[in-house]
Structure formats: structure tokens, C-alpha cells
């Protein structure tokens, strides 16, 4: 699990182009949107693509992301349960 969290942090930094940020700067329990990292709806769409591409998880609409992207830990737990690759 911790390994998946680390991997996810690296992928998030890369795909969202969070320049100058390191994995340890992201608190896996902090909210990704609004407060915390301050991401927005387009970032959520990028994360949806990330889940499909890297873990084979396909979300049907953007609203499902709201629950899953609460924090990196929640996201990692969801991926662990639903991943197809």
C-alpha cells in the first residue's frame, strides 16, 4: 500500500506538471482538491486518464471522481481494489 502511495504521488506530480514538487511534499491524507494541493476540475479529468492508462480503471462520469480523489490514500485504496493492470 505504502509503495502504491509513493508511486501515485510520483505519477500525480508528473501528469499534473506540479513543477518543483517532490513526493514527500504531498500529504497522502490531505484533500487533493480545494484546500490541500488546490487542484481543479481539469486536474480531476487528468487523474481519471491516469487511472485508466496506468491501472485499467475506467470511470463513466466525472462525478465518480469526487469520492475517489479525496486524498492520495483514498485513491490508492480504490486503485488497489479495482485495478485491472
Amino acid at each position: 500500500m505504502e509503495q502504491l502511495i509513493e508511486e501515485l504521488k510520483r505519477e500525480i506530480i508528473e501528469v499534473l506538471n506540479l513543477e518543483g514538487m517532490k513526493p514527500e511534499d504531498i500529504d497522502e491524507n490531505a484533500p487533493l482538491f480545494g484546500e490541500g494541493l488546490g487542484l481543479d476540475s481539469i486536474d480531476a479529468l487528468e487523474l481519471i486518464v491516469l487511472m485508466e492508462k496506468n491501472y485499467g480503471i475506467k470511470l463513466q462520469n466525472a462525478n465518480e471522481g469526487k469520492e475517489i480523489f479525496k486524498s492520495v490514500r483514498v485513491m490508492a485504496e480504490y486503485i488497489k481494489e479495482h485495478r485491472t493492470k
Binding site: I42, E46, V49, E52, K53
Partner: peptide, 9 residues
């Protein structure tokens, strides 16, 4: 498939 939204927008 699996296209990123950012470069489009």
C-alpha cells in the same frame, strides 16, 4: 483512447 484533456483545452 486515454487522451489527456489539458493539451486540448
Amino acid at each position: 483512447e486515454c487522451l489527456p484533456p489539458t493539451p486540448f483545452m
